[in-house]
Structure formats: structure tokens, C-alpha cells
Simulated assay, not measured.
Amino acid sequence: MRRLFIIVGISALAACAPKVQTPAVVTRPIAPVGTTMIGFTENDLVSRFGQPTFQVKEGPGTKLQWAHNGCVLDAYLYPESGHIGDRVAHVDTRAPSGADISINTCLDLLQR
């Protein structure tokens, strides 16, 4: 009888425990100019900027580069757990001379 009370008590506690939900995988749409591209895939970038002008494999990651209209955009893609394919982890923008250029200005120039 004592075991029955223990089992009933444990069952009652388990029923009151909070439910753990696994977060859904969210795909990121192509963002408007000036917003982050972190998490984008290579396909996202190609659909926005066309084929990269330069591509190189660097260790586990890939560097994709677009250069057009006075802007150079470097996107660094690395494997991300829980996702198939590499995702953008970092983005750099600059003028061809190497001078700093804002990401908003660069993205605007690339899309012309």
C-alpha cells in the first residue's frame, strides 16, 4: 500500500512539472539593406548579389566575396549545429582601396 502512495505521489508531481518544448528551427528570409546577414546560407547570398567574384575555402569555413560599384563584401560561412550547410558567421565591407565603408552603403552599391 505504501508503494502505491509513492507511485501515485510521483505521478502527481510529474503531471505538474513544466513541459519542455524544443524550439522550432527558423529560416531567415533575405533581410532588407542595412540589416544583418548572420545566419544566411550561400544560396541566400547568391540570390541577393549573384555569383561571388571570389571564393576560397579557409579551414572548416568558406569566404565568399562580391566586388562591384566600389564596394567589396566578404562573407564568412561556417558550419552551424542543427543546420544543413554553412551559414554566415561574419561579414566585412570595404572600398577596393581597403578603406572602411559602411555595410549599408556597400549593400546599396552591390545591389545597383
Rank of each mutant, 00 (worst) to 15 (best):
M1T: 15
R2N: 13
I7C: 07
V8S: 15
V8H: 15
V8M: 15
G9D: 12
A12F: 11
L13G: 14
L13K: 13
A14N: 07
A15N: 09
A15D: 06
C16F: 14
A17E: 12
P18I: 11
K19D: 12
V20T: 10
Q21W: 06
T22M: 04
T22E: 13
P23S: 04
V25K: 10
T27M: 06
P29T: 11
P29C: 06
I30C: 01
I30S: 01
V33Y: 01
G34H: 06
G34M: 03
M37N: 08
I38Q: 14
G39W: 08
T41S: 14
N43L: 03
D44E: 05
S47V: 02
R48E: 03
R48Y: 08
F49S: 03
F49T: 00
Q51I: 10
F54Y: 12
Q55T: 14
Q55L: 14
V56C: 12
E58Y: 04
G59D: 06
P60V: 05
G61L: 11
K63N: 04
L64T: 03
L64V: 05
L64M: 12
W66G: 06
H68D: 06
H68G: 07
H68F: 05
N69V: 05
G70I: 11
L73I: 04
L77I: 09
L77H: 11
L77D: 09
P79M: 07
E80P: 04
G82D: 02
H83C: 02
I84G: 04
H90S: 14
H90V: 15
D92L: 12
A95D: 11
P96N: 12
G98A: 08
G98R: 06
T105R: 00
T105K: 02
D108V: 05
R112Y: 00
R112A: 00
